[in-house]
Design a protein around this nucleic acid. Sequence first.
DNA 1: GACTAAGCGAGACGGTACGTCGCGTCTTAAA
DNA 2: TTTAAGACGCGACGTACCGTCTCGCTTAGTC
Lengths: 195, 195, 195, 195
Amino acid sequence: MAEARQQRGVHAERAILDATGELLAERGVHELTVERVAARAGVAKTTIYRRWRGKRELALAVLLDTIETADAVPGDLGDTRAELISFVGATVRVLGSTLMGRVMQGLVSDLAADPKLARAFRKRLVGVRMAELAQVIERGIERGDLRPDADRELAHELLFGPVYYRLLLSGSAFDDGLAERVVDSVLPSIARTRR
Amino acid sequence: MAEARQQRGVHAERAILDATGELLAERGVHELTVERVAARAGVAKTTIYRRWRGKRELALAVLLDTIETADAVPGDLGDTRAELISFVGATVRVLGSTLMGRVMQGLVSDLAADPKLARAFRKRLVGVRMAELAQVIERGIERGDLRPDADRELAHELLFGPVYYRLLLSGSAFDDGLAERVVDSVLPSIARTRR
Amino acid sequence: MAEARQQRGVHAERAILDATGELLAERGVHELTVERVAARAGVAKTTIYRRWRGKRELALAVLLDTIETADAVPGDLGDTRAELISFVGATVRVLGSTLMGRVMQGLVSDLAADPKLARAFRKRLVGVRMAELAQVIERGIERGDLRPDADRELAHELLFGPVYYRLLLSGSAFDDGLAERVVDSVLPSIARTRR
Amino acid sequence: MAEARQQRGVHAERAILDATGELLAERGVHELTVERVAARAGVAKTTIYRRWRGKRELALAVLLDTIETADAVPGDLGDTRAELISFVGATVRVLGSTLMGRVMQGLVSDLAADPKLARAFRKRLVGVRMAELAQVIERGIERGDLRPDADRELAHELLFGPVYYRLLLSGSAFDDGLAERVVDSVLPSIARTRR
DNA sequence: GACTAAGCGAGACGGTACGTCGCGTCTTAAA
DNA sequence: TTTAAGACGCGACGTACCGTCTCGCTTAGTC
């Protein structure tokens, strides 16, 4: 029963998410309106509000939808530096794509204004990244590449902070070497070394 | 006459900025409305729009006003590490204060939507920080503490990225050792070393 | 078969009418919603729409249900004036009860907007009253109390108009002598008289 | 100052009332929506809500506007019966016009639901009619046509009740002789007579 | 005693209108 | 000429019910 009911729902949901994605790509979060989404999706506003609390949750849904689909932890590459570069590089690539970059930019301010949204964002994005990084670091420690007492959270902030700083504040464009340079700057502080 | 006119203007301007500051402190950017500012400042909306393009510019004005007053480059402390910690620490302290932290959070999304605003923000905030850091680095190089080819921009991003990452994305609270830990993590990559 | 099925139906119908009656008594027609009726009756909206065209028909059904049960033509009292007073008084009493008064008030506007509803209303309420009055008048004529050419329709309007005028327009409360005063004012014009 | 401000306002107000009148004439109260009025008047919804509490008040405004303009107490015609017929006839004519008839029909139910509206309606319509009738009756008494103890309120209800009964309940069309017949039926009960 | 078709509960859906908020513009009178 | 005051057009918000529409479940009576 629940499934059958959900059936209809799934169609509407798909249409809504797709429409939202298109509108986000075209104009960004701040021109995203529930009304436009409804119109484009051929759906009633009510149907949107039945599932999400507003355009912010909707945008977050699309963001998570995309990121969870697109992203993957790097497998074991045998080389910690390479794994870290691949890991940071994946985020650089996603945020460099117009859509996700824009959505992130548009969503950030809402995080501070809506605790529920922030909670979801942190659990499903920040937290997941942190856990993934922890795996990479674990492997690095096992390999003897990294110091056993490397601070996972700090490492996470050091690796991603600069990327988001560009996206959100300095406005510098991403370049191909970015991930590599960041990793190389941070690595010495967590690498097992005779320094 | 011109002076007398400006006089009036100056009064109004002060009242507006003060009212804006208060409202920002009380409720954050997203509940800042031009109407409320006008009411609190005892000023007509027109008078506000005559000087700023909207609430975003207004918030930015307050932000710059505060930061330019409060902040100072550390002078020569004789120790590059100490200077860097002091430099990053100053930003941590400012952003940790409710007001500026909130304003930054609320303003970030607008930067992406309003190029004019972004330009001002980058010129008067990001740019200034970068130049200040460059001085510190220069002194460090002269002292022989830092490598002569240290990447100023990257250093800037590495030092501030993590701080803003906490503020804007991860939501982790600032703690007292933050500046020190970040500096110590980044320093190896720019320090003059025999590695 | 049909009966058993109808059995279920009868239960649902009873539950719906009862719920409607309760809601009407509590809040009046304009706060009557099909959704609330369905909820209170423990019935699906569909089940309601299967039997009535909307909340207006539903309200009318309750109104007729109540009135047809409660009301009775006065029998032969031997005195035309007494019969008329009893006749008008019955309506005053019914409309004076919160429920029916409210329903009438709330329904009137819908009559003008929904011809089908108006038709039903007139056939089963106005028409019935008129026929009943005609009987009373007939008896009055036979007794020699009334003029043989008394205008039945006009009499009907003269007797009930003032009552509904209070209910719907002037807002004056009903009082016990109302029926009597109205009858006494109208009687001279239809009484057999040597004037 | 206030006047100059009102100037703009007056334009908008006129446009709104006109648009409302048109829409009422075309479709009746129950299809009157604030949104349509705004669209037709070339005015923002807000501007309407700034002046009236909703479509009901708007409709009432138009009704009063029209009635207060159109209606006039009959002057002294020298003949009480003629004055009464003229008085009732004026109402029959106004209500017989599509517009006002429809508005009255559509408004009645709202009176019961909105005490503020009812108050305005009664003060500016019912009350005024009653006062006007009182004058006519006064003159009639002075002339010796009417009994000095004629009940003004009852007379009012007897004269107008039947008219509204037709409009709101029985649905019978108005005919030319209506006012005359009603007056002749009620007159005996208030006329100075040897009955 | 299982089958089947109607009626039913549940509730999602497209839709219309609501009444509200804040925007940025515009108009006017007073200073 | 600048200001305070505030009305205005506008666009979007989130909500309430409408009446329609599936969708299994329930429940007789029929086979």
